[in-house]
């Protein structure tokens, strides 16, 4: 039962993730991303990681998606532009397909031959508030702090690069 639902969910997840990349309309891509993130949250629920599932929905499907939609709205890509973008240069497209295809085939072959161990049951308290907090503030305290510097840099960068030009 568990593995059937897992594979159903996983298939839906991969399909919606592919839609994000392949779909020509940016708004529909963004919607597919919402679906991807929700499905990922459901996977976390199946693992018993309720805290992570909730964070996944609040942070990604909530906050970050709203940002995405705002950006798409502000950029206001017209259909012609999107069409022109899609066509690109034929030679590059073929090259990219071949390169990507070879890499995908290699990775697929790799995953098929690696003997992955059977999944063990997650430890007690997995994905709960306490284990998330321990990971964030004890085990990975330094990466956590560095990420805050990274966000500060991103904010400065936005202001530096996007502020109105003083003429």
């Amino acid at each position: 039962m568990g593995s059937v639902t897992f594979f159903l969910l996983a298939t839906a997840l991969v399909v919606s993730a592919l839609t994000v990349v392949v779909h020509p309309n940016p708004v529909k891509s963004a919607m597919a991303l919402v679906a991807t993130l929700f499905l990922l949250a459901v996977e976390f629920v199946f693992l018993g990681a309720h805290m992570i599932a909730a964070l996944q929905v609040i942070v990604y499907a909530g906050a970050i998606m709203v940002l995405f939609l705002f950006v798409i709205m502000l950029l206001n890509l017209s259909d012609e532009e999107a069409e022109a973008r899609r066509r690109g240069r034929a030679l590059f497209r073929i090259g990219a397909w071949i390169g990507g295809g070879v890499l995908a085939a290699e990775l697929a072959a790799l995953f098929l031959r690696v003997p992955f161990p059977a999944p063990a049951a997650p430890p007690a308290g997995y994905g709960g508030a306490e284990s998330v907090a321990t990971a964030l503030f004890v085990d990975y305290a330094l990466p956590f702090e560095l990420t805050s510097i990274l966000l500060l840099i991103a904010v400065i960068g936005t202001v530096v690069l996007a502020q109105r030009r003083a003429s």
């Binding site: 560095l146 990420t147 991103a154």
Partner: peptide, 19 residues
């Protein structure tokens, strides 16, 4: 993981500085 974060802190600052 730390190497990745250090690399990002450096790179993103330099992307901005380049522009």
């Amino acid at each position: 993981i730390l190497i990745f974060l250090g690399l990002e802190v450096m790179s993103i600052s330099v992307y901005i500085l380049a522009g």
